[in-house]
Amino acid sequence: MLDDFLVRAALAGLGLALAAGPLGCFVVWRRMAFFGDATAHAAILGVALSLAFAASIFAGTLGAALLMALLVSTLAGRGWAVDTTLGVLAHSALALGLIAISFVHGVRVDLEAYLFGDILAVSKSDLVVIWSGAALVAVLIGLRWSALLTATLSEDLAQASGVSPGRERLVLTLALAVVVAVAIKVVGALLIAAMLIIPAAAARGLARTPEAMAVGAMGVAAISALGGLGASLQFDTPAGPSIVAVAAGIFAVSAVASALRRAG
């Protein structure tokens, strides 16, 4: 069954959904959207470095994403203007990454695959990496759910209840880096943030509890992955952007539905 590239692609998409759903909720709740972008853009630099040093792409993207995430959260903690800092770092990392890739000789580099994902080319070993990473993130968030939620509500309240907000922030930073490294093969560096935010935002309108929203986001991401793959096959469109487009469509329907419910 795994020999079918479509089955592998579908499993890769579902793996990403498992992690991106709940993590995306925290990205929305904590207003970290641009933080996700910066981390994802750094991954391109990671790709270039791993090509240059013939290291594993997963390790390179994970390392670069982790460094960027830690750098940004440290700078933000020191009172730098977050959106300016993120803007500078995100786009510098992307530009440097693109330049670095152009210097890598002797390897056939399919740049588009890293920018927009190449879900149809997912191998069995990619699947192992994607599912391990996604399961790790899902378990991490599941185990720390209450603490993460408390720290998201209020750092003061968390601290007073014996939850360290700094540790929870680090957990989310690590999870974000892992998801970026996992997702670059599926939707690509430019659309990772979309897979974090859009399913969570789509689930928001119909959820009454944080838990329902996380599960809903997981579901929306899963449907988007499968629907996007189907659409890509049907209409011969690029897979990564198709997945995100389906997610956006679900968001639109959910937004209208919840507006109608509120009005009615």
Binding site: V28, L153, A200, P210
Partner: peptide, 8 residues
């Protein structure tokens, strides 16, 4: 509490 966070 961010409006994006449903919290009963």
């Amino acid at each position: 509490i961010d409006r994006g966070l449903p919290m009963p």
